[in-house]
Design a protein around this nucleic acid. Structure first.
Lengths: 69, 69
DNA sequence: AAAAAATGTAAACTATACTTGACATTTTGA
DNA sequence: TCAAAATGTCAAGTATAGTTTACATTTTTT
């Protein structure tokens, strides 16, 4: 699964630390999600989408490999 | 956070077991999510939304309490 | 009414999201 | 060019998502 968090932040001139603070997680958590190191909970992705005035599906995209067993 | 998975299943006459199989998790996982026992990963909620031909934001809704620290 | 299918729940376990602290590297800007 | 801010990364810990097995309860079907 890929995401455009880094791009959305850039559009708004927002740092990882600022986004982290707004959604109440650590800066490293945002960093790890951007890099694809781990997948956030739906709660967190919903919060991130809301901060960016968009939807989870606009930010995150499933890949074919995500459906492999 | 609340969700309408149970309703979406009902619309399609789909059992928890059938949905679970389609998104590759156990039946208890689907049950637990419907009941609000735990919050799925974004990967799983994206898959569920896709099975229902809809979006994560259509199925899941943030509540005011989700923003409390 | 009885059988079968579906759902709820629980406990013990494994996997992974997320935290904290610390430091190295890169980017920005004065 | 130098300092500060931002980003990348790592390790060790905690919290919680998700599995498996098993069984009880409810709903559906015959």
């Amino acid at each position: 699964m890929i995401n455009t968090i880094k791009v959305e932040r850039a559009k708004r001139n927002m740092t990882q630390a600022e986004l982290a603070e707004q959604v109440n997680v650590s800066r490293q958590t945002i960093n790890s999600i951007e890099i694809g190191k781990f997948i956030p909970s739906t709660l967190l992705s919903m919060k991130i989408a809301q901060i960016f005035n968009t939807t989870v599906n606009e930010i995150f995209e499933l890949e074919a490999s995500d459906w492999k067993k």
